[in-house]
Design a binder for these strands. Structure first.
Lengths: 172, 172, 172, 172
DNA sequence: AATGAATGAGGTTTCATTCAT
DNA sequence: TATGAATGAAACCTCATTCAT
């Protein structure tokens, strides 16, 4: 899975063959099929595994208060996680428009996203924002946008400063 | 090209075959190769064509003033164009992490992006923003992020309201 | 035809496409088919044209005497002609084992070869050679062998000296 | 490989398709690519294998004496081997003018040829031949020429008698 | 747990040839 | 005389997948 993650991130899912994965992992093609039913099942496990890391972190905060400090922490932690799992995020974003793959993880994706969505809605509602749901949508879009630009060009994108600016702008 | 644009947007570049394009366009596979040297050359022309539309619109404003009104107009026009060319943008975003394809259009992409970048840098600098370049970077990421979310789910994403909010937040 | 001759010699018959010939000749593919029924018809005309040059030279000597001086002249002229028409000979030798092509020119080839064969048979018979027909066969093989080696590596093969040696050895 | 050898000899390399080879060998096209990276790699292995047979025979005699008897034996063995491997030699001669293929085996060809060349040079030098290197070149050309004519028409070419004549003429 | 031989469908590309103009 | 749009068959090659061992 580690090798597959790497290859998928570097070359894209469709462009990476089972043969190549087996070769780089120094195992046989057949062995892969002992553990994964298909190539799709492989990417599915990779993606779900990636989301889990994210979800786990969030469940930490599930029933507690989500105030200014938590907002702060949330944004920063998001990008810390992204930096730690660059490959996963690259894959995820590159598959955003591949309906056949997205369908595979739709359920898990929703389950991961919904709580975040409602927590943020609440957050902005509590702060009397005129249209909290729109702001939440924009905010999530911003996170992906920043991720997209960072992952496209990690060496030049000023991630830390941008993140600080995001916090400042969207905290309230 | 129209058929290809459609298919690439719907299924992704790698998942769409020349055979399928030919079939939908009701021509022979061979004919495609009379006009495009390869599948890569085809996507290249599609991408460059798409950027051109964007660039043309921008050159309009090249040497003139870029003030508050123009900023307004720029954001709105960006998403008007995106709505008109949804397929193109879907392709573009889905290829953001396919280095072999990006390389094909690197030059054109840079040529399209650089002037926008410097105009925005100036814009924020004139308004005494403490770090105009970081803000420009964030702003461009936001545009892509909003685009990504809109294109992922055009029916539910509240594009117009989000755009208004973007203008309000990033105008200054 | 000139362009085709060149390409066939350089890349081989099967490896050279009508499209490429047309391109190098700066005409359209269609035009080629106005003058030649097929690719096979094209190579056929090229080959026959090449043999004709050879035959013409031989008819010169047809009914006359073929003595020591003529033998001398024959060998030298053979290689002079080969040097002048390197491309043609390269094609001819490269097709020696392509039965489908050889069949196209079998008749012409025989017509060109038979008189030479009988003249040489006579030549050796007159000189009381024990097995003139075997010697003729060997001699013709030698001519082709020398041609093969020369055309394979024109810059390093010492053609002139080899030819002199051939004359000395096979004159009698 | 056996099937490929056969087809290449009968129809030429370019005219024989992987599909046809697979069909005659009663295996799938794909399987061929499990063992050979490409069609070129296939012909390369075939050619190298063919030369090896020749080289092996020669290494036998490498450091020993190469006198009149060995010369005799060499010529006769050459054509014995050729008769046993007609297909290989047909392929080899038919590719003599296909530069892209020759390049694949250039190294191996040189390694096979060089020792023969120097042994023959020595042979003629020891016999005080005025220009031993030219004679060697001619002699090798003769071998190929005889092979060419024999393989072009095995049923009618008087190989044994021609070989005897070659030995007699070139022994000294 | 692990291999690698084997396949069949389908991918991109090439190409001789036709034909309306 | 000349073009170039168009085709269909076939070329080389890739790949997910299966299966006997």
């Amino acid at each position: 899975m580690q090798v597959a993650l790497n290859l998928f991130a570097k070359q894209g899912y469709t462009n990476s063959s089972i043969a190549q994965i087996a070769k780089e992992a120094k195992i046989s093609k057949g062995l892969i099929y002992n553990y994964f039913e298909s190539k799709d099942a492989l990417i599915k496990e990779i993606l779900i595994g990636g989301f889990d890391q994210f979800v786990v972190f969030f469940e930490h905060n599930k029933d507690g208060v989500f105030g200014n400090d938590e907002f702060d922490y949330f944004v920063k932690e998001t990008f810390t996680l992204m930096k730690k799992n660059e490959d996963f995020w690259r894959i995820y974003l590159s598959l955003a428009f591949q309906p056949n793959i997205i369908k595979l993880i739709e359920k898990e994706l929703m389950e991961a996203l919904m709580p975040i969505l409602s927590i943020l809605d609440n957050y902005y509602a509590e702060r009397k924002h005129p249209s909290p749901q729109v702001k939440t949508r924009l905010f999530l879009a911003v996170l992906d946008g920043v991720g997209l630009h960072y992952l496209s060009d990690p060496d030049n994108f000023p991630l830390d400063e941008v993140v600080k600016m995001v916090v400042k702008i969207f905290k309230e």
